[in-house]
Simulated scan of single mutants.
Amino acid sequence: MIALVCGAALMAPAAQAGARSPASSTPVYFGSSNMQLRVVRTGVTFAFCPSHEMQGEKLNGSTSIFAHSFIDCTTSFNLPVTLSANGDWTQNSTGPTSDPDIDAVSITGVSLTGVVPFGCTFTVTGGAPGTYNRLTSVMSLDPSSPNPGAMSLVASSVSGCMGLVQTGDTFEWSGDYAVDPPL
Rank of each mutant, 00 (worst) to 15 (best):
V115R: 12
E53G: 15
G95E: 10
T82M: 07
Y29F: 15
A14M: 07
S98K: 04
P146E: 02
Q16C: 12
T170W: 01
T123I: 13
S152L: 13
N147M: 09
S84L: 11
R20K: 03
D99M: 06
V165N: 04
F171W: 02
Y177E: 04
N34H: 06
T136H: 07
T121S: 10
T94W: 01
V124D: 05
V40C: 01
G61T: 02
I102Q: 07
P100V: 06
V44S: 09
Q55S: 15
L112T: 05
T108I: 06
R38T: 13
T26K: 14
D103E: 14
G31Q: 05
D72P: 11
A47I: 11
L153P: 06
Q16P: 09
S157I: 08
T74L: 15
D169E: 13
N147K: 05
L135Y: 13
T170L: 10
T123W: 11
L10H: 11
S145N: 02
Y29C: 08
L79S: 12
S21W: 02
R41F: 08
T45Q: 13
S25F: 01
R134P: 08
N60G: 07
T136R: 01
A128F: 09
L112R: 01
C6V: 10
Y177P: 00
S144M: 11
I2N: 03
P50M: 12
S106P: 08
T97W: 08
P80M: 07
L83W: 05
S106L: 11
S144V: 12
G31N: 10
L83S: 05
G163P: 03
M151E: 15
F46W: 11
G168D: 12
C6D: 10
V165T: 01
N92Y: 03
M1G: 06
L4Y: 04
V28Q: 06
